[in-house]
Design a protein around this nucleic acid. Structure first.
Lengths: 319, 319
DNA sequence: AAGATGCGGTCAGGATCTGGCCACATCTGT
DNA sequence: ACAGATGTGGCCAGATCCTGACCGCATCTT
């Protein structure tokens, strides 16, 4: 009895010629019974190969090659971009069965079979010459993301188990609205009925997703986009802060150009910054780049965060 | 446990990427024991696929060029991964005409034609429900990357103009060896004949690539991999820093995801970070986000910067 | 030398495969 | 309409293969 995989590879090779073969002919080639041949054909179909048949006199099995690889209208750049996108995603994850990175790896290994013959040498040369830096990111399964996407489209509630950052598990039942990809993480924006509020979940902490079959009436999103809401969630509160800096206004404007702040010169060498603080860490980064002394005139919470972090920095350097 | 044939086809796809994979990584992807993996590799060898290995630290399995691949189909997860990869790459860049992100955006819009009809509803629902966060990264054209890949494969010298970080332009003529994707940037590892040494170039600073038609005799790479050499080059002249953090490794990995650092757990609640210091300000930002105590074990310059900035923060809060 | 990788034999238990048999569906040619 | 030649899929008992665990070993790097 031959190795099954070997036989399947042989059958694939035979069928990829695109010719029709009668069952009788295939059983002779493979040296198996007609029943086993039928199982083999079913097996190929299970893997996604579109094997066509026709019963009756002159009946046959045939691999519908034209449907496996439909004519592609990707131009050269698009094909290369697809390849590079897969290479990049393949390097992002934990190499777990079912993970997106695993699926991306396999797709990356197959892509040339879906491109016109003229692009194959290019794919081969890119693959041979490209290295990607591994990037650790929490695993999410392609299956879970696509199930959730379908329930969003169909306005169907889902239930799942959520594990928060401290390891506590809760069962949730929500209306799903958007999935967001942000800084190597996948998030779900959903309405939580029990809490009567919007919630953002990290998809790598979501397990045991179940489709409830229960439809919901869509409600308006809580912000312009799910991404906006996600960002707001990551930045709590907005404390008014005023800082006097020992630096010229022009310097301050240059360093704080990505910060939404009001900047006024006091004199040639001193400047006032006024802003609504959303992240003390990002403001500290800007102040670090300024490399100038400063004084916090307003903003007790920010001052407290600075004191705490300052103490921490001093403590870190003690031997 | 997957059907053996299915698993072998998946393993073939994975190995076809040309990358080296450790046994550990493959066992995780395939969800089998190490012993079974070894049998699978033997099985592939028996079918004529030349799988190379290297034992010892950094050991791996890799598929050498040789045997033709059987016809392969995209499974559901692979199709989803392709879609997500394109979505992610489309959001990464500067939206410049000709850039990879531009091509990825177009391919993302065309993916349906790529896929069997049964997957179309899934693609549609993912597209409708997914948002991706824009990520600014230096732009590179798909055309340039593929031209360079071809010259690497064909051992052909290229000429180009290079603009360094200070804006100075030089003409270069080099032997190209590898393109590397690392932390959102594309690099080229090449041998520079004039300088008689290896050089790493950022591809977004490379312009006016010209194929010279002149072949070169390949020389051995300067390190185990181009990525290793790239890391050494990027780290050259930077201060080695070692920090002990009172936080679990998983938390640290989460926060330092865009930092090129080695992160090792000491125990459940303590972690060591080892890195070459690029910018003390950016590292301080990461440490601020960690919200945990830490101690600097190595890196006198960094410690001094922390002390100075700590004093500045403390001074800023005095009334 | 220690440790991290790959290697291959052996075993018991479990899983899958096989050919034969059967009733059935579909198609073509007379 | 019918006969015959094709493909279809369930069921069964017996045979075969696969698996993880265990073990001792080889190779490579630091």
């Amino acid at each position: 009895m031959a190795d099954v995989t070997e036989r399947m590879l042989g059958l694939l090779s035979t069928l990829q010629t695109g010719r029709p073969f009668s069952g009788d002919e295939l059983t002779r080639r493979l040296n198996v019974s007609p029943r086993t041949l039928r199982r083999d054909v079913d097996r190929l179909r299970g893997y996604g190969y579109p094997v066509e048949t026709q019963p009756g006199p002159g009946g046959y099995y045939r691999l519908a090659a034209g449907r496996t690889m439909p004519p592609l209208v990707l131009d050269d750049d698009e094909a290369v971009a697809t390849l590079l996108a897969l290479a990049s995603l393949a390097a992002t994850g934990t190499s777990t069965e079912g993970g997106i990175d695993d699926a991306a790896t396999r797709a990356y290994g197959k892509l040339d079979q879906f491109l016109p013959a003229r692009l194959r040498p290019r794919v081969t040369s890119i693959r041979a010459s490209l290295e990607t830096s591994p990037q650790h990111a929490p695993g999410v399964t392609a299956h879970q993301l696509s199930v959730v996407a379908e329930t969003i489209s169909e306005h169907e509630m889902i239930a799942f188990t959520y594990t928060n950052a401290r390891g506590e598990r809760t069962d949730r039942r929500v209306e799903p609205y958007r999935q967001v990809h942000h800084l190597l993480r996948w998030y779900l924006l959903a309405w939580d009925g029990e809490r009567e509020d919007w919630r953002v979940f990290r998809m790598d902490r979501v397990t045991d997703v179940v489709r409830t079959g229960e439809p919901f009436e869509p409600r308006p999103l809580p912000a312009g986009s799910a991404l906006d809401y996600l960002r707001q969630g990551l930045n709590k509160g907005k404390e008014p802060v005023r800082i006097r800096v020992d630096a010229p206004a022009a310097t301050v404007i240059d360093v704080l150009k990505f910060q939404d702040a009001e900047i006024h010169p006091i004199d040639d060498q001193h400047t006032t910054i006024t802003l609504a603080l959303d992240s003390w860490q990002w403001l500290i980064l800007n102040l670090a780049f300024l490399e100038a002394d400063f004084h916090i005139s307003e903003g007790a919470d920010f001052a407290a965060a600075c004191r705490t972090f300052g103490e921490r920095l001093m403590g870190a350097t003690r031997t």
